[in-house]
């Protein structure tokens, strides 16, 4: 059995979360406004370029989420830093990462249909991203397998680290294999040049910042939900014990 984790979130944390939520909302609204109404159409892609103000930020946040989940898993596995908090953080970040990976795949598919003429192609980048989605779905399923808390947390942490191996493969797949997907345009690792300029660049940058804030807000709420669920489990156990004590006394 594990120690009681009943914690009441302070008012300060609640206020900080509210501020973060408002900042995220403002950022996303500004990104959508700039992306849809202010920035010009692209010379080659036309209005379809507007989808790229949300698609790369989705992919970036997915990578960030899996990076945080892996770091938290590593900290959980390390005996000196082992804490239930890191397990909860890994679970929260992993779940939000799966949402963003799904959005990356679907928004990319919506962009690909008019650009490439197909909804889906077994391109290395798309395939490894789909694999990443399935790997982290498996990680979330692994977290739900019943078992003693620390056993479950340890095997989940190992699962998260194994799944993370695919992240650099996804990123570098456009360099390693002949790919239909375009190479990085914000900062190309081969040419060290950026291919986005002016209002397009600022809108894309705002998109990255805004959706990172959204990610932080979502993870914070998912973490608090996990904390409350743990507290609920512990309290349920304590109530059951109290009832057994009452029965023993009444006999």
């Amino acid at each position: 059995m594990r120690a009681s984790t009943r914690t009441v979130p302070s008012e300060r944390v609640a206020v900080a979360l509210r501020v973060l939520g408002v900042a995220s909302l403002v950022g996303v609204v500004a990104t959508v406004w700039l992306g849809l109404f202010v920035t010009p159409p692209d010379e080659f892609m036309g209005n379809l370029v507007r989808l790229l103000y949300v698609h790369p930020p989705m992919a970036w946040v997915a990578f960030l989420a899996y990076g945080v989940a892996s770091l938290a898993s590593l900290l959980y596995l390390w005996p000196r830093t082992r804490s239930e908090r890191f397990d909860r953080l890994a679970g929260a970040s992993g779940e939000v990462g799966v949402v963003f990976t799904g959005l990356t795949l679907v928004s990319g598919s919506i962009w690909g249909r008019p650009t490439w003429g197909v909804w889906w192609v077994w391109d290395p980048l798309l395939t490894t991203t789909a694999l990443l989605f399935v790997l982290y779905l498996g990680y979330l399923a692994l977290r739900r397998v019943p078992g003693e808390f620390h056993v479950r947390a340890r095997r989940s942490a190992i699962g998260a680290l194994i799944a993370f191996i695919d992240v650099p493969i996804v990123y570098l797949s456009v360099e390693w294999w002949r790919s239909l997907h375009q190479a990085p345009t914000v900062l190309n690792p081969t040419t060290h040049k950026t291919y986005v300029h002016g209002s397009m660049a600022w809108t894309l940058l705002l998109g990255f910042v805004s959706f990172t804030l959204v990610y932080t807000w979502l993870v914070a709420h998912r973490y608090r939900l996990a904390e409350l669920q743990d507290a609920q489990d512990t309290e349920g156990l304590e109530i059951a014990l109290a009832e057994r004590r009452a029965e023993a006394v009444g006999r």
């Binding site: 209005n47 507007r50 989808l51 949300v54 989705m58 799904g102 928004s107 919506i110 962009w111 979502l218």
Partner: peptide, 15 residues
């Protein structure tokens, strides 16, 4: 062209 709107609605609606 409809694709852009669909993409934004899908992303914002899901989140």
């Amino acid at each position: 062209n409809g694709y852009v709107e669909a993409g934004y609605i899908m992303v914002l609606g899901t989140l």
